[in-house]
Design a protein around this nucleic acid. Structure first.
Length: 1053
RNA sequence: GCGGCCGUGGCGGAAUUGGCAGACGCGCUAGAUUUAGGAUCUAGUUCCUUAACGGAGUGGAGGUUCAAGUCCUCUCGGCCGCACCA
């Protein structure tokens, strides 16, 4: 199939000697690609470079650069690249300086995994793949400035990835700093050099707390001066502040692969994605980046971005900011309440009226978003990994607790949550004191409490939280209602119970029925129904019986209602009448308060007593930034014999990866307790560093794949700069990215990580915009067809025959199958290789087809059968200009002044194409090109004044064809910088328009009127029409609605 | 479970944002051209019914409106994200 164009390079499939001038796309595309390369047509100059014209507006248009995998480009990749190239070419013609670069994300796990499996070095496979990708990308005729190509695995690139890491290592986050950025933004919080912190400490302005934190208050209990702090403690103080720091965190440790895995790399069986090896949750010392410090700014700065709303929402959810309070629950065997305050059983120095919230020992710290429900906290739960578990567990419970802790360590987060299994947990034997009532409550451990969120411990309020309700029900813990539910909720709940949703609800219903005899009949009557309350029951409820009585019943007996009320309402039982409150000072009474009010009051009450304070929390975790892999950026850090870390100097960068023949991880038994042995550990010579007589070991970890892609858009600005990550002037001129196009699969991680790095650089004064990507656009996925048999099993394309249009059977069995849309995959044999399509139809056809498939952001199936339609478009455009018989210009081409119709068609097309391009509606822009060609084809005379502007409109979409036609029309330079044709609005207007006339909303006739006819004229013309008159017979006209230029609706009856 | 997106001919998809549903392309039908064709050109192509007229129609059911693919309520189906976040 592809031979025609390859074997006969002179003409595509042309064995017909008499036609000399057919559309020879291969030759044309090669010629123009060579021309652009030779003339450096798309070389982009930076401000300051000779010839740079910075008076022109700039446009930075960026693709998400690819990871060069072994299988090469598939048709999904170029979808976005074609779109950005079209926009880039359009913007150039509109007079912009366009920056449109391309590069490669070349570090990462797949290359390493492939290398391990095939026993070749990752550098070799990566280079091979890079060559393939470069060759493939060039086929499409993209107008990239290839001089700016970056490859993240090259030392000259990752030198600055390491440099940015050091910037973070040498910085801390001052969350009280208020400042104005270079872009004029008022910002709260700022990354500042660690040196500035040291200066504050040395001057004595700030001190050190007992927990080695920073204290700004002059008079704080336990505050120490910097000069009184030991060398080792000083280092600990600073290390605790760094944006890049080492910490012991719970990770997915896969001993068989010898590395830590990200959550995405672990399946819901708790096995590794690659190789299905067991994965264990265990604490390991890892490099962390303090992204949580940026939670607020990552949220609030989203508002000013031109991004798809769903993506913004996903980022907001990912950051997951919540507000509430932190509360201390003192342990019951350590603390008691005296008349004067809290008394510790053993440590008299702690026994003060008001405990220090920061340092109070032997207390469980919880985070809650609903402090107003504190009176309903009837037990507590610690995550199994919580630090206090061991200390508080009583002898009687120790065995059970330890068994539970071990069991839960073997389950990943996903495994814990995936199959909606029952809640599990174990009582520790310990009790803690509810600080608002003084009552002791039991402390449990359960894996429904996550160690990484909040404080890793909760106060459980079964009546106000469905998880706590479930747990309390299962383990028969007390449930006390503290928020009065709403009428709407209680009706819904009763409805759900009547519908018999679960056994527990049924028993609750018996209880309600016996207490409310007036409801019993109607409840019984509707009991078999599958859903909800009958109208009759509702009537009874809202009438005599009263929803209020039901609510009162719920408040007394909420456990029987089968579900927690998690909404907002009015506080009750806070405290409950039957509870003897034992607290320091005046008790807090919340009864009758609204949820908002109650939250404020209880938080203030706790704060006064040192037992609580308001708090903000994020779902976002600090970023685990190290991997135990070979193929990534080494950390520019050394460790001395005491384990203290020392950063390399900037002039020691890049720290290159040592060449290693054996880069495999060290596999070990599937035992949670083995320690990671990263491949770099075996580069013995590389690891050892001696400096000033001290010996150090290099850090053995490498950075995750995200690192390189966090800042590549900045390197494109100045890719060959050896001294800086990019020139300041270039950054100022080009940033931010005006349009960033890529797949929605990067909606959260890449885009969040990239924004985070950018903000750090912004805080430190290295970049001048607070956000990197002003406008984001997600292209859809290109899917493939597959076939489904009766049982719903997918059948691959190669096993199916089309018997008649859209009827398919399995070839060997004649079993009918239906065509469905599925992901492109090797197993379904529906992967399309762009090389083949380009060989057969050319790059211009390929570009046009992909853009014409549908809206850019929609997912849609590839259908090779549709491609020839776009090929025909190219051929027809070709024939508008070229005479196929002679290879000269078409005889229809003429220098006549264009007629009004032709001019109107041209200007309508200019308008449509231009407007659609601005909105990235490339499919309808191409439809406009079709319309123009359909109009022009039958014309015997085709004026240049119409054809030439059309060629310019075509240029962004099919640049090779357009360049060729432009040349043949007598121009001797590229059209890449020709001015985009201007629309003359007056010329787009029709003289006459057809207007539909409706009678009672149904079209009865069409009339033709002057385009500028007024309502009066249109109305009378419509009513004068014979068919309208017929439709109006025996009716009275009530109203005539005229929409100028569109329709008339006659309302009559 | 929670959140988001989307359902329009045989297929991919249009529809100035509330104003003629089905632009444009594919496929299909008929015709033209001595046409090697996967070429070109012309006409037709939502469905039902008819000689014509007509009727129905944007997943389904209601509603608002002179007018609904578009707005509202409920519902069914598909895709994506998150997933015990206290």
């Amino acid at each position: 199939m592809t031979q025609a164009n390859q074997d006969v390079p002179a003409a595509s499939g042309d064995r017909r000697p008499e036609k000399l001038g057919r559309y020879q796309f291969t030759a044309i595309e090669q010629r123009w690609q060579a021309y652009w390369a030779e003339h450096r047509t798309f070389k982009t100059l930076n401000p300051g470079e000779p010839g740079a014209d910075t008076t022109k507006p700039k446009y930075y248009i960026l693709d998400m650069f690819p990871y060069p995998s072994g299988s090469g480009l598939h048709v999904g990749h170029p979808l976005g690249y074609c779109a950005t190239d079209i926009i880039a070419r359009y913007k150039r013609m509109r007079g912009f300086n366009v920056l449109h670069p391309m590069g490669f994300d070349a570090f990462g796990l797949p290359a390493e995994q492939y290398a391990i499996e095939h026993n070749v070095h990752p550098a070799d496979t990566t280079n091979k793949n890079l060559d393939m990708y470069r060759r493939q990308l060039r086929m499409f005729g993209f107008s990239y400035d290839w001089d700016r190509e970056v490859v993240t695995c090259e030392p000259k690139y990752y030198k600055f990835t390491q440099w940015i890491f050091l910037q973070m290592y040498h910085s801390w986050y001052d969350d009280q700093c208020r400042w104005t950025g270079p872009d004029g933004a008022a910002v709260v919080g700022r990354a500042r050099p660690i040196a500035a912190l040291v200066a504050e400490l040395e001057s004595g302005a700030w001190g050190v707390s007992a927990a080695l934190g920073i204290v700004r208050e002059k008079e704080a209990p336990g505050r120490r001066r910097w000069s009184d702090v030991s060398e080792a403690e000083r280092r600990a103080v600073l290390d605790k502040q760094r944006l890049a720091f080492l910490d012991e965190v719970a990770v997915n440790w896969c001993p068989a692969l010898g590395t830590v895995l990200s959550n995405e790399e672990v399946d819901n069986q708790g096995l590794s994605d690659r190789g299905s090896h067991p994965v264990f949750r265990r604490p390991l010392r890892q490099w962390m980046l303090r992204i949580t410090k940026y939670g607020d700014r990552l949220l609030s700065d989203l508002d000013g971005l031109d991004w798809p709303e769903p993506i913004k929402l996903m980022q907001r959810n990912w950051v997951g900011r919540s507000t509430g309070a932190e509360v201390l629950f003192p342990l019951a065997d350590k603390w008691r309440i005296d008349r004067d305050g809290w008394v510790h059983a053993e440590r008299t120095e702690c026994s003060t009226g008001k405990p220090d919230f920061e340092t109070m020992p032997d207390a469980i710290r919880v985070y809650t978003t609903r402090p107003d429900t504190l009176f309903g906290a009837s037990y507590m739960v610690l995550a199994p990994e919580h630090k206090l578990v061991e200390a508080i567990t009583t002898e009687a419970q120790r065995e059970a607790v330890e068994a539970y802790v071990v069991a839960s360590r073997h389950r990943s987060d996903l495994d814990r949550t995936s199959d909606t299994k029952d809640k599990t947990g174990v009582f520790t034997g310990a009790f803690a004191i509810n600080p608002v009532t003084g009552e002791p409550v039991p402390v449990w451990i359960a894996d429904y409490v996550l160690t990484g969120y909040g404080t890793g411990a909760i106060m459980a309020v079964p009546s106000g939280d469905s998880r706590d309700f479930e747990f309390a029900t299962k383990f028969q813990l007390p449930i006390r209602c503290v928020v009065k539910p709403t009428a709407h909720w209680i009706e819904d709940r009763l409805g759900a119970m009547v519908a018999g949703m679960d056994a527990q609800a049924a028993s609750g219903l018996d209880d309600v029925s016996s207490e409310f005899p007036e409801l019993a009949d109607s409840i019984a009557a509707t009991r078999d129904r599958s859903a909800g309350l009958s109208q009759k029951t509702l009537d009874v409820l809202r009438g005599g019986a009263g929803v209020g009585k039901l609510i009162a019943h719920y408040v007394r007996h909420c456990a029987t209602w089968g579900a927690a009320f998690t909404g907002k309402g009015v506080a009750v039982n806070s405290p409950a009448p039957d509870v003897t409150v034992n607290v320091v000072g005046a008790p807090c009474d919340l009864n009758g308060a609204s949820t908002e009010d109650a939250m404020t009051r209880i938080t203030a009450w706790l704060e006064e007593r040192g037992l609580g304070r308001s708090a903000v929390n994020y779902k976002l975790r600090d970023w685990i930034f190290s991997r135990q892999k070979y193929w990534g950026e080494p950390f520019p850090v050394m460790h001395d014999e005491d384990g203290a870390s020392v950063a390399l100097d900037e002039d020691e960068l890049p720290l290159e990866l040592p060449p290693m023949a054996d880069f495999k991880p060290t596999p070990s038994a599937d035992d949670a307790d083995t320690l990671p042995l990263p491949p770099l550990g075996r580069a013995k010579e590389w690891v050892k560093v001696s400096r000033d007589g001290t010996s150090y070991r290099r850090d053995l970890n490498t950075m995750p794949q995200w690192a390189g892609s966090c800042w590549y858009y900045l390197r494109f600005l100045d890719p060959h700069n050896e001294h800086r990550f990019c020139d300041a002037e270039a950054e100022k001129y080009w940033m931010p990215v005006d349009l960033y196009v890529g797949g929605a699969e990067h909606a959260v991680l890449h885009l969040l990580y990239g924004r985070f790095w950018h903000k750090v650089l912004y805080d430190l004064g290295h970049v001048t915009t607070c956000e990197p990507f002003q406008k984001l656009f997600n292209q859809g996925m290109i899917q493939g067809f597959a076939f489904k048999d009766k049982r719903g099993v997918l059948v691959s394309e190669d096993r199916v025959t089309e018997t008649s249009p859209d009827h398919f059977v399995v070839s060997e069995s004649d079993e009918p199958v239906s065509r469905v849309i599925a992901k492109m995959s090797k197993s379904l044999k529906n992967v399309v290789n762009p090389d083949e399509i380009i060989a057969e139809y050319g790059a211009d056809t390929f570009r046009l087809y992909e853009m014409y498939m549908g809206p850019l952001d929609a997912s849609k199936p590839w259908n090779t059968r549709d491609v020839p339609g776009l090929f025909k478009l190219c051929q027809r455009i070709w024939r508008l200009v070229v005479d196929e018989m002679t290879d000269g210009l078409s005889p229809a081409l003429c220098d006549d002044a264009p007629e009004k119709d032709a001019l109107r068609m041209l200007h309508k097309t200019i308008k449509r194409v231009g407007e659609d391009l601005e909105q990235l509606k490339l499919n309808t822009a191409i439809a406009a090109l079709f319309d123009f060609v359909n109009y022009m084809t039958p014309l015997k005379r085709r004026p240049r004044a119409v054809v030439e502007p059309f060629v310019l409109l075509l240029a962004p979409f099919a640049p090779h064809l357009a360049e060729e036609l432009w040349r043949r029309l007598g121009h001797d330079t590229t059209l890449a910088f020709e001015a985009w044709p201007e629309v003359d609005e007056a010329l787009t207007r029709d003289d006459e328009v057809e207007i539909a006339v409706q009678v009672a909303g149904k079209v009865k006739a069409r009339i033709t009127v002057a385009a500028d006819a007024d309502e009066e004229t249109i109305s009378s013309a419509a009513l004068a029409d014979e068919r309208v008159k017929a439709a109006l017979a025996n009716k009275t006209v009530r109203k005539v609605i005229v929409i100028k230029g569109r329709l008339v609706n006659v309302v009559a009856n």
